[in-house]
């Protein structure tokens, strides 16, 4: 087992090495005039460094002078030392901005993930146990609709209904106008209030996939021989489904859920942008649009690491949870 994990870890590092190279190459391929124009624009901001300082920092950090290959290795070296430079858009060190934003994204992602799991899995199981019934059709269509729903359209609809027509929530932002006057508890409630719509959006848009996955797996399990055996033994249907079948369905589901966990840190780019929630997704979107190279590069590498970590966790969990899987 340890050997397997080690092997996968090494593999991931190699993959990361190449992904980082592609990201670095993308940055190097941007027209120089664009980079310079952006740096110049940023240097105009109040309290920002001067243009020469930005360009110098950029040149040193990404080794613009050297060839792509040598520049890449130097950049890797500085990444290992944890030096990511200063963000242009935010005029603070990249890591500081990251630390300021990532936790909000994580909290939001975690809450929506929690709801996603407790809604999608039971519905998926119900649909599977009642295959071809009206319930099954309804749930399947809901799941498909969730998958097909463009985030931005759904978010706009929610805004129209709940913010504009009903006036329950604000259109944008994390805090209300009178946030500073509120007590500590009131501030917490204010933030929670502002997170309702983004979380609803995230849950609805992402639960479809999990629902379908659960249903497919449950159907597979229900067709297995041991379920037939359980029924033949004369066990009640309830016991068959919730004792024998459910536990076996959990195997792939736990794997998938474990694999999703790292991505909670990468934030929800579209949703955060639409609702103006200052999480890492929104911050990185603004950085990318503003041509803030240091922050965008950091964010892309960070997302790549999270994806690799997710795959790794999923594979390892699969082996851990399912005793039938033996890894050579």
């Amino acid at each position: 087992m340890r050997k397997y994990i080690l092997k996968r870890l090494l593999q991931s590092i190699v993959i990361l090495f190449f992904v980082a190279f592609i990201i670095y190459a993308l940055m190097r391929c941007l027209p120089t005039s664009y980079v310079e124009a952006m740096a110049r624009q940023k240097s105009m901001q109040a309290g920002s460094k001067s243009f020469e300082e930005w360009m110098e920092q950029l040149t040193v950090m990404y080794n613009m002078d050297g060839s792509i290959i040598s520049g890449y290795f130097k950049w890797l070296g500085s990444m290992f030392r944890g030096e990511f430079g200063d963000s242009w858009r935010w005029t603070v060190p990249v890591l500081q901005k990251f630390n300021d934003t990532v936790w909000l994204s994580f909290v939001m992602g975690f809450i929506s993930f929690f709801f996603e799991v407790i809604i999608a899995i039971p519905l998926g199981i119900i649909a599977a146990t009642k295959q071809y019934s009206k319930t099954d059709y309804t749930i399947s269509v809901i799941a498909l609709a969730g998958i097909s729903l463009p985030t931005f359209f759904f978010a706009s609809l929610l805004k129209l209904v709940f913010s504009v027509k009903l006036g329950w929530f604000d259109l944008y932002g994390l805090v209300g106008r009178n946030y500073d006057q509120l007590s500590t508890f009131g501030q917490l409630m204010d933030k929670a209030n502002h997170l309702v719509l983004p979380i609803v959006t995230l849950v609805v848009v992402s639960m479809g996939a999990l629902m379908r996955y659960t249903r497919t797996n449950m159907l597979e399990v229900l067709n297995a021989d041991y379920i037939r055996t359980a029924r033949a033994k004369g066990l009640s249907e309830k016991k068959v489904i919730y004792h024998h079948a459910f536990r076996n369905t959990l195997i792939p589901i736990v794997t998938i859920i474990g694999g999703t966990l790292p991505s909670l840190f990468s934030g929800a780019l579209i949703t955060e942008t639409l609702f103006g929630i200052p999480g890492i997704g929104f911050a990185s979107y603004q950085s990318m649009v503003a041509g803030d190279i240091p922050f965008s590069m950091f964010f892309m590498v960070f997302t790549a690491i999270l994806t690799l970590l997710g795959n790794l966790i999923a594979d390892v969990l699969y082996a851990v949870v399912d005793p039938r899987v033996r890894i050579a």
Binding site: I15, F18, V19, I23, S284, G291, M300, T307, L308
Partner: peptide, 26 residues
Amino acid sequence: MRIVDIFYCIPSLPFIIIVGAAMDAA
């Protein structure tokens, strides 16, 4: 398959957004 893994890992949305922003500037 390792190449496939690499392409799986590229954060495509940020990638396209950066290219889009650069095309905007150009």
